[in-house]
Design a binder for these strands. Sequence first.
DNA 1: CTGAAAGCGCTAACAC
DNA 2: GTGTTAGCGCTTTCAG
Lengths: 340, 340
Amino acid sequence: MTRGPRRATVKDVAALAGVSPKTVSNVMTGTVFVRPDTREKVLAAVEELRFVPNLSARSLRNGRTGVIALALPDLATAFSADMVHRVVQVAHERGMVVLIEETAAEPQREYDLVSRAREHQIDGLILNPIRLKDSIIVHDDQLPPVVLIGEVEQHKVDRVLIDSRQAGYEVTAHLLERGAKRVAAVGGETGAADATATSIQRLDGYNRALRDHGIAPDPALEVYVEEWSMVGGAEAAEELLGRDTGFDAIMAFTDSIAFGAMHVLQEHGLSVPGDVLISGFDDVEHARFMNPSLTTVALDRRAFAEAAVDLLMTRIEDRATPPRAVAIPHELVIRGSTTR
Amino acid sequence: MTRGPRRATVKDVAALAGVSPKTVSNVMTGTVFVRPDTREKVLAAVEELRFVPNLSARSLRNGRTGVIALALPDLATAFSADMVHRVVQVAHERGMVVLIEETAAEPQREYDLVSRAREHQIDGLILNPIRLKDSIIVHDDQLPPVVLIGEVEQHKVDRVLIDSRQAGYEVTAHLLERGAKRVAAVGGETGAADATATSIQRLDGYNRALRDHGIAPDPALEVYVEEWSMVGGAEAAEELLGRDTGFDAIMAFTDSIAFGAMHVLQEHGLSVPGDVLISGFDDVEHARFMNPSLTTVALDRRAFAEAAVDLLMTRIEDRATPPRAVAIPHELVIRGSTTR
DNA sequence: CTGAAAGCGCTAACAC
DNA sequence: GTGTTAGCGCTTTCAG
């Protein structure tokens, strides 16, 4: 390995500025007051030597790296993209940088991240768990600072959540009130072995809405989608069409699922919203730009990211703080896909 | 700051296993052969102490962190999301982790990243420059390992590119051959102060295609889009409709622009592809799922990410290697938006 | 193949 | 306010 020219160190700067290394350190970190003229001398030396502090050394000393990790199941989804975008922005405002990890392809990685966080030299972790069972969190006695995002049922760890149960209720009720009689729920199944809290809660809201409107649930209207993507949504729609259930609305568990489903319906000559009403979840940017635009559940993702980062930073500061949960409010955004 | 229990160190492991720290190190890094029984003893001690090596210390010693940065203008776009996804996957396969940075909101950051990479303790940087002028790269004598991605005109640095000029030619020709007479180019303008290499090349291909088909370019058909997003595309379409140019096709510089434009046209009661043909660039996943699906220029993004990561790793290994450019082939994918 | 000692660059603790 | 000393945890000499 070829290396560049040797870097200047605090010692070099100190020598040139005629001060001690500690003073250089004080100037660089800015935590202690330094007399202006000394400060100037140091800065001049820093400039001349193009001194850049070595963060590895600093981390080794003070135990903090200024790096947090964001671990999401699938980075290719619009929701993930937006989360990455927001978290990177917020973290940067707080003086931290963000390491990205993807967990869906390799479930073991989720566990690995939690248990070996320190190896990766991250100060903390924001995790959207999919396979992570409570046991992993609970059984590990020395967790790194972790914030869970999503609809996790887990009370020992900081988390940011939305009330998916209520949201699921609201969209379903909206579909029903717009005249739908046979609303399909497209996403996870409560019964599935890997049922996520998200699935369970959204489906629960859906079922309660049906009940409140005097409609009996029909298992044929519940479609399981393995991958919550457009491809998954498309497959689910084909499945649904094959079942011949006479559905007249789709309550999709994510916008991506809704997009995929809508595409297939339209390919089959069905009109949205003429023949079938469709709703999504997340309000990703595409929702506004589809044809028709998509009714969906929106949440303030900036607030979501801020809550996650801030919870994490508090936890990093004080590992003993009792776990907190922050709920981000949601809002039903009604658009063309449910407006005839 | 509250801390967890003290972590085990190589020393502790060495003591428990009855060997020297160096042997522990040898076992952990796996670079040297260690006698199986010694190895076992060490591993047992590692297990018992739940020893996790401290990467800051390791970095401090060997100058490498195993972290690369990926800096993109806007993380919220589908193209970015997919790049993040791929780069994280490839990097992970190569044993590296990825730090994400966003540059558009704060152009200074681009310079900062290049010039202060070492401070951030990254081994190298994959950068999709937008504002970065050649001067910054050229003038800095001690660059960190950098790979530029996109259509950068820059021969002193490793880069991964696609032949946007040729691709621009091909889509435009396709539009023309499908009967369009008045093709609008929606993206950047060559004349704009911040014209990017991407704009220049795509527009150049567009102009050459027009010429080869005996059509005179019309400045009224060139629409500048500041933000290459759906919102930007929507605004551009409004602008184009306002200009009353009698356009019958849109060659959008990205899929997102195309989506935004298509939405507006359809809102105005125009049919795609009936009244207007539309094409995009990038082949993001949504392209297939729009209504109609979008004709676009596809490139193998997995190959793109692999090329970027591999160039970077080679550069990290040997700073003296002459700069290389890898071209990723593209392909015109014809879909509903140009099929009547 | 394994051990001992030195030091990567920085800052916490303590002097002054 | 600033200097001195020591050491964070690891790996690289260099011996053996």
